[in-house]
């Protein structure tokens, strides 16, 4: 039973990312979208938390939201996979339920 967790909040404004990381289990998938994509960038003070999570969880970020915000996919934490909406749909299908950390 695997969950796709979605995080749509900036980690600098809300605790959604932290709540997600502490309530997700090994082998799950985490998709960063909307303002959640800020957590995917290198050099932030949540980078180490995200990297720690990536040891046991797969992290994705939504490409259109990265581009919209003027962020560069070159500056994304290594190992985070950028997906488009079709990829988002695929993740929702391949995991058996979705938890939205609103």
């Amino acid at each position: 039973m695997s969950i796709l967790h979605t995080v749509n909040k900036s980690p600098f404004e809300k605790n959604s990312l932290d709540e997600c990381l502490t309530h997700s289990t090994d082998g799950c998938a985490i998709l960063l979208l909307e303002d959640g994509v800020y957590a995917a960038m290198q050099g932030t003070n949540v980078e180490s938390a995200v990297k720690d999570a990536m040891a046991s969880k797969k992290v994705y970020a939504l490409g259109p939201d990265i581009k919209l915000r003027g962020l560069s996919t070159d500056r994304i934490i290594d190992g985070i996979e950028v997906v488009d909406f079709a990829g988002f749909v695929d993740l929702s299908e391949s995991n058996d339920k979705v938890q939205a950390w609103l």
Binding site: N8, L33, E34, F85, F88, V89
Partner: peptide, 13 residues
């Protein structure tokens, strides 16, 4: 943005 994201997800699905 929630409704925009929902729209693009729905369209894509």
């Amino acid at each position: 943005q929630a409704t925009d994201t929902a729209y693009h997800f729905t369209k894509s699905a």
